[in-house]
């Protein structure tokens, strides 16, 4: 299957056009992204796959407002993060991430001195707002879906790797962000915990209507996705429908 580009205006939760990101200059210059055009469809589970060093993390960082592209346009949830070499400033990007994006990283997702519950509500804390009763209902539902109800009082050091990742997923979902980015969320997990976390991400798309972008180099993990984007040498090599 060759790459198809769905209508960007209506259905894209995130879209990139001519996205490049280079590090260094001169002889040591590395083009981590060398012109990426990509649209992430709202309410889908997209897997970004590719060999190590191909630019997957860099792409995710640019789409999530964690990094500023060298050139190109990035629009996420209706907000233009970067266009024509100009980007939102750090404060605006920070606010954007806080209000519109959820994150799950490969490891070290949780603050060790906070309990699971405190980690989950951290985004509200940082925004300085009290969760509304709706927020709390939603949080309760997410926690139940993730099977974390009886783990919320524990500190991360008392949780297994899989449980820690599920807490991270819960935190990414509680604010109902426009899009959730997960960078190798199962990279450090055994196969059972991996399956658990992938199942949870899948359910958040199916049951909660969430948009999820997951970076992985594991083809098995990609099989849970609706769409699969293949990155090679900083370019989109393929964009196909997944098997899920």
């Amino acid at each position: 299957m060759t790459s198809t580009t769905p209508d960007p205006v209506r259905t894209a939760a995130a879209s990139a056009r001519g996205l490049t990101r280079s590090y260094g200059s001169g002889a040591t210059r590395v083009d981590a992204l060398a012109g990426v055009d990509l649209d992430i469809t709202t309410g889908t589970f997209t897997a970004v796959v590719g060999p190590s060093g191909s630019g997957k993390s860099t792409l995710m960082h640019c789409l999530a407002g964690l990094d500023t592209p060298t050139s190109g346009t990035v629009v996420v949830g209706g907000t233009e993060l970067a266009a024509d070499g100009r980007a939102l400033d750090d404060a605006a990007l920070t606010r954007f991430r806080r209000d519109h994006v959820g994150f799950v990283f490969q490891a070290f997702n949780l603050l060790p001195m906070l309990t699971a519950e405190q980690n989950v509500v951290l985004p509200f804390e940082l925004a300085g707002r009290r969760p509304t009763s709706q927020d709390r209902e939603w949080q309760s539902y997410v926690v139940d879906v993730l099977g974390l109800r009886d783990r919320m009082g524990h500190r991360p050091s008392a949780l297994s790797g899989g449980q820690q990742q599920r807490v991270a997923v819960a935190r990414a979902l509680v604010t109902r962000p426009d899009i959730v980015f997960a960078d190798e969320p199962t990279g450090n997990l055994d196969s059972r915990s991996s399956a658990d976390v992938l199942g949870v991400l899948r359910r958040s798309v199916d049951e909660l209507g969430q948009t999820v972008v997951m970076v992985t180099h594991d083809e098995g993990a990609a099989s849970h996705a609706d769409e699969v984007v293949v990155i090679e040498d900083g370019r989109v090599a393929d964009h196909r429908r997944g098997v899920a």
Partner: peptide, 9 residues
């Protein structure tokens, strides 16, 4: 991580 989650500078 905190910065990613929305902690400003």
């Amino acid at each position: 991580l905190l910065r990613a989650l929305g902690l400003t500078r």
